[in-house]
Amino acid sequence: MARVQANGVDHHVQVLPAKGAPLGTAVFVHGAFIDSLASFYFTLGPQFAEAGIDAVLYDLRGHGRSERPPTGYTLQDFTADLDALLDALRIEEPVHLVGNSFGGTIALDYAVHHPERAATVTVVESGPATQDWAHTMAGALDQATEQLPPEEALDWFVAEYGAIASTRQGDGRHDAHIRRLGRNAGKFIATTTIARDIPDGRVLSDGEVRQIRCPVLLINGSEGLVAEQTAWLAELLPGTQVRVVAGQKHSVLVEAAEEVGALALDFVITEADKAAALEASLDAALEGGRTR
């Protein structure tokens, strides 16, 4: 485990080094409120390391074992954290970004604002921050924080999250687990500005989304939450690849980890190979130019 100061926040970082000579670096960005780097540490992280890609995982500010400042939870804060983190870790080559849920929103925002540092973006059950997205988030968070007394907010959260996110609702053990996560999320919302900041953060215009230059893969559960966003993004970015995991909901990353890992790795390795081949042919062309 490492502690890394980035953008004024003490971040918890875990690096799973590639087996053999690394083919590249992947940076994993987890979701908001109840998530942490653990979702990737026990799923895609080891799969990527095994396949020869350095896996860098970190807890977003306020989450997991990272510092929890009282304010500063807009999308632009999270994107600035990621940029500062890559600097602090001295990662100079473009990275493969893999984001789950809100982490996917951060990864896409990062690719728009720092195109030179993004080799590919893989997004699990998510899409870019748009006006509609901000409106939906604001409504859901308002319901959780303002309209219900705290003890009911927790019940609401457990019921909603269980129903929308997981294929395992009704499984007593799983519900107990979600209830524990809900308690933590309730404390997070009560002690910071995150519930106000996320809907108030910057959004991307169609024009900005069209500026994304790197290859993008979207992985969704067939019963997930973002089908509309995915269709819209795929139309704006014609090269976007979309994969759907049958029978899965929003929690597809942890509930179908092997399948999601195989899809993401296939995409990242194919694109890394293409980039390497392009670089080699450019080098050869330059070399040819020099010797002529």
């Binding site: 485990m1 875990q14 799973l16 942490s36 780097l37 653990a38 979702s39 540490y41 026990f42 799923t43 992280g45 080891p46 799969q47 095994e50 807890d59 997991g64 074992r65 524990r180 996560l181 933590n184 980890a257």
Partner: peptide
């Protein structure tokens, strides 16, 4: 034990420190 998944990440680090890299809890759980 009411351990969260992030606690298991910390435990994983302690296991590798104590026993060496052959004990790879992340890979085992994956």
């Amino acid at each position: 034990l009411e351990m969260e998944s992030i606690d298991l990440v910390t435990l994983s680090g302690r296991l590798a420190e104590w026993y060496g890299p052959e004990v790879n809890f992340a890979e085992y759980l994956a």
